[in-house]
């Protein structure tokens, strides 16, 4: 447990306690940790294992099964590029390529300064305004490749990594 701060341990214990009355709370616990803590490293899984009685192997299996959970911290801004069918046929590949080019990282990676992560998503249900990109939950409609540099700039200006 060497790497976790006391506050983090307390937070994770609190999350586990929050769902203690649920019948099978694992997914809810992990979702909450992912949301509040940003990622779910092994040390955190060990605490969850202790609290729930579920083996670390099983928890790790769940964490790595669902693409929403991550083992590494994500960037401050997570750029979710939809590569779903509706977006794909409207040129989403070029959009994500452009983000990759500008930020110098591949999808799934985080910039060295911890600012940006690019995620390839499968349909965010905004197909009516394809191609769509979602950045920290804000959806950008009908993107063009030429919009990409401006968007990156916008977030760069909004502030540094935590």
């Amino acid at each position: 447990m060497a790497h976790l701060s006391e506050a983090a341990v307390a937070q994770i214990n609190e999350i586990c306690a929050r769902y203690a009355d649920e019948k099978t709370p694992l997914m809810m616990i992990l979702s909450a940790i992912q949301k509040e803590y940003g990622y779910i490293p092994l040390e955190v899984q060990e605490i969850v294992s202790e609290k729930t009685g579920i083996s670390v192997a099983e928890i790790y299996g769940v964490v790595t099964f669902y693409s929403y959970f991550s083992l590494q911290p994500k960037g401050k801004y997570v750029i979710g590029c939809c590569l779903g069918t509706a977006c794909y046929v409207k040129g989403a590949q070029q959009i994500i390529d452009k983000f990759s080019e500008i930020l110098g990282i591949a999808p799934g990676e985080t910039t060295a300064d911890g600012m940006f992560t690019i995620d390839a998503l499968r349909c965010i249900g905004a197909c009516g305004i394809a191609p769509a990109v979602s950045i920290n939950g804000k959806v950008y409609p009908k993107l063009k490749v030429s919009d990409v540099p401006g968007i990156v700039e916008e977030y760069r200006n909004m502030g540094g990594a935590n």
Binding site: L42, G53, S55, G61
Partner: peptide
């Protein structure tokens, strides 16, 4: 509790201890 589990998914799935 169990040491071994399924990890990742699809073609990348393996059976192993965590990580």
């Amino acid at each position: 509790k169990g040491v071994l589990g399924f990890e990742k998914r699809g073609f990348n799935t393996i059976v192993a201890p965590a990580e």
